[in-house]
Design a protein around this nucleic acid. Structure first.
Lengths: 184, 184
DNA sequence: ATCCGCATGTAACCCGTTACATGATTCT
DNA sequence: AGAATCATGTAACGGGTTACATGCGGAT
């Protein structure tokens, strides 16, 4: 125990590490995966991607695969996770949902949920979803408190609050549905 | 015409400018407003807030109010918008919704919607909401396409897509509701 | 007299964006 | 041969985060 945790990773670095843990990849592979999958909302540029991979490498979380194929040693750095990297990824997946920031981090939690499928046992996934649902329920309750407490002289702020309520209630219902679907 | 547009503002700067346009404020006022209102999801630090205000001032969009009260000239810089600042804010409010980035910018659009209330005539607000609804409908349709096209060997990605569908459908329903509410 | 809240700032650090640069490989 | 794609990188710039610094005003 007592592994040198190193500096904390950014969300983007955590996602890169997760993708590499799921399947060894080069920078270009990752780029294409971002471009083609429905994650494609975000499209990292070379200037973001390659330095981030180097940072992961420098911290010993990933390493370039030994280029065994001597034939076409094309200029390609395929990264694979190290033991430390796999551990860091698992630890990230197991991080409990922070209720205070659930709204801000919702997209990230969904990302983690997707990556959990082949890394975490079903029971832990359910626990995660339950934590997510609880945090969302608390957030919805807080919004309901605002709606009840604040006297609204104007319409738009109230309507904006309704938007938040509608969206996070939908998120909450989804979490409950996912729990049910995965429990069966 | 041909006003020196200056460098483009960040989202945060646009929001600050909008808050100052709604009511002249000091940096500390703005800080408290962020902390107390339901916007409070995001809490800017001094190192973010004050330099941003200085940038707005340097670009001639806001200026410190003439300290008329000679009595307690406490160390307080209350900013008010300039003519250029009001124009820039109005132009930002009138920016049409970009369909390609509607998911990423949804929070920002809601912010704009709130600030439109006392700046834009009802007809323009409806037009904005209609653009938002159209963009959301297109995004939902795209997600539906993914659900239909992709063969899912695994559950979690499909469930994550369902989450997106649920959330953006709720957003879309809200936009339609808001149009109806404001048309009456 | 001292502490807490008001109020504004500065400096180091890091990361993302943008634009540019550089080769190797495959296609026509 | 020339063009497009594959593939990785660098450099300048700007802004956010964190932590620290400073001084005034009112309250106990």
């Amino acid at each position: 125990m007592g592994m040198a945790a190193g500096p904390k990773l950014t969300s983007f670095e955590h996602i890169l590490l997760g993708l590499i843990c799921a399947e060894p990849s080069s920078g270009y592979d990752l780029k294409r995966r971002f471009a083609t999958t429905p994650i494609g909302v975000y499209q990292p540029s070379s200037g973001t991607l390659y330095p981030a991979l180097r940072r992961l490498e420098r911290q010993g979380l990933v390493r370039p695969q030994s280029s065994q194929d001597s034939e076409s040693a094309r200029q390609r750095r395929v990264y694979e996770p190290t033991g430390t990297g796999l551990a860091a990824h698992g630890s990230w997946l197991r991080t409990p949902v922070e209720p205070a920031t659930v709204a801000r981090d919702l997209g990230l939690h969904l990302m983690r949920f997707v990556m959990m499928e082949k890394r975490l046992p079903p029971a832990e996934v359910i626990t995660f979803l339950q934590g997510l649902a609880d945090a969302l329920a608390a957030f919805v309750a807080q919004l309901e408190g605002y709606v009840a407490a604040a006297d609204f002289p104007s319409q738009h702020p109230r309507l904006a609050l309704y938007h938040g309520l509608a969206v996070y209630r939908a998120s909450l219902r989804w979490a409950e549905y996912a729990i049910a679907a995965l429990s069966a």
